[in-house]
Design a protein around this nucleic acid. Structure first.
Length: 231
DNA sequence: GCATTAACACATC
DNA sequence: GATGTGTTAATGC
């Protein structure tokens, strides 16, 4: 027997945008501006954050180095784990681009608001579901794709999540460095760089240091699905 | 054969 | 000068 959970305002498709409404919760909070690479926090943080501009990278310290875990962009909540202090982990958050801005709210205040607001509850659910979905994709990447396929797979997800559709193409601007793409894809910077150039020669993508255009999303998609391809 | 790494040359900030 | 890019050769699995 399947239990159906009804979320307010969702069934008829005109759902209130949780993220926009969630921003209202942070309305009177000051913005924290960060330069590229600047650290936001390193130890477990008891605050819930909202990105208002740019992007934040989350990584986990593991042995000597950091494992790049995920990134968040304008409108995204992060560190919702702070709502459950026993779930807090050592996480490092830093800015991926200069001019990145975030707002933060102590978890207890966020929690208090969320208890009486379905909008905020929706925002938290959305954050968790999106994060869980990306974790599954990441798992798929690291367990069953080759290094080059992992880069293609990440690039595809990155374009879908952060790219701007322009006609049949998708523009990602600004773009992560090859090193960062390598970290997200679980490979080295050289592998990412060589593959990106290969895709550029094949006219599937085009890029400079400032932006990247996916010219052919379908071709990119096909590369991650081809079991015999060299990607 | 595949992936990583070091190394080098070169470009750009 | 520091950082990023593009390529190749060596090495290990």
């Amino acid at each position: 027997m399947t239990q159906v959970i009804h979320f307010p305002n969702v069934e008829n498709g005109n759902a209130a945008r949780p993220v926009q409404n969630c921003a209202a919760l942070f309305e009177d909070r000051p913005e924290i501006e960060l330069q590229r690479g600047e650290l936001l926090f390193e130890a477990p943080s008891h605050q819930v954050y909202l990105v208002t501009k740019g992007m934040i990278k989350l990584s986990m310290p593991y042995q000597e180095h950091d494992l790049t875990e995920d990134y968040y962009q304008a409108g995204d909540l992060f560190n919702c784990e702070a709502l459950l202090p026993e779930c807090l982990q050592a996480v490092k958050a830093s800015a991926l681009f200069s001019g990145t801005r975030v707002k933060r709210l102590p978890a207890y205040r966020f929690w208090k608001q969320a208890q009486s607001s379905t909008v905020f509850q929706q925002a938290i659910f959305r954050h968790l579901f999106d994060k869980s979905k990306r974790s599954r994709q990441q798992l798929l990447r690291v367990t069953s794709l080759s290094a080059e396929q992992r880069v293609v797979h990440f690039l595809l997800q990155y374009a879908k999540r952060s790219g701007q559709p322009v006609g049949l193409e998708t523009v990602i601007k600004p773009i992560f460095t090859h090193k960062e793409i390598g970290q997200f894809a679980g490979t080295g910077r050289q592998t990412a760089s060589t593959l990106l150039n290969k895709l550029r020669r094949e006219k599937i993508i085009h890029f400079t240091r400032a932006y990247l255009i996916v010219r052919d999303m379908e071709a990119l998609q096909a590369l991650t699905e081809s079991p015999y391809g060299n990607y």
